[in-house]
Computed example of a mutant assay.
Amino acid sequence: MKGTTLLKHYEQLDYVTEQMLISAHKEDWNTLLSWQSQYSQLSENIIELDGTLTTEHVPTQCKDRVRMYIQNILSYQQQISQLVTTRHAELGELIGEKIRQQTKIENYQHVANLI
């Protein structure tokens, strides 16, 4: 019974993580963040349940599916991290460029005021 529950939690976590990745690809940050609470809750449930299980509680077939879900989840997390890191760097560059442009405009205005 606990093995089946663990499998269901991993299946749900796999789905939620995939949805987070889809949101990151779409740069839909609000939706990505809205999945965060469900992701955290499922993670906590898995940690609690996993701590009470021994290998005899989980049938071999369930173990194989859990491994598959774990691999998927780790892959999704890595992709999300890469997307967020890349977008963060891009935004940093855009902000830096915007600040440089604003500084140039302020300098031109200052010179114009002197003339």
Rank of each mutant, 00 (worst) to 15 (best):
G92E: 14
I73P: 00
Y69I: 00
L7G: 02
K2Q: 08
M20K: 00
Y108H: 14
C62N: 05
V66Q: 02
T85M: 03
T4D: 05
T60V: 12
W35R: 11
T17I: 04
L74E: 15
E27F: 03
S34V: 05
H9R: 04
T52L: 05
V66S: 01
E90L: 09
H88P: 00
Y76Q: 13
L114K: 04
I99A: 04
D64V: 14
T5M: 04
A112Y: 12
K8E: 11
I22H: 12
G3F: 00
L114T: 15
T31R: 12
L33I: 08
P59C: 07
P59S: 09
R67K: 11
A24T: 05
G96A: 13
N113F: 07
T86A: 15
N30G: 02
I73R: 00
G96T: 08
G92V: 02
L94S: 09
T54S: 14
A89Q: 05
E48K: 10
T86N: 10
E18P: 00
L49I: 08
Y69F: 08
H57Q: 10
Q79L: 09
Q38I: 05
N72V: 13
L33C: 09
S43Y: 04
Y76M: 07
L6P: 00
E56M: 06
L42R: 01
L7P: 03
Q101I: 03
N30S: 15
R87Y: 13
Y76H: 11
L74P: 03
D14K: 06
N72Y: 10
V66P: 00
H110W: 04
N45H: 07
K2D: 10
Q36A: 12
K104E: 09
N30D: 13
L83M: 08
L83W: 03
C62P: 03
E18Q: 07
I22K: 11
E106P: 01
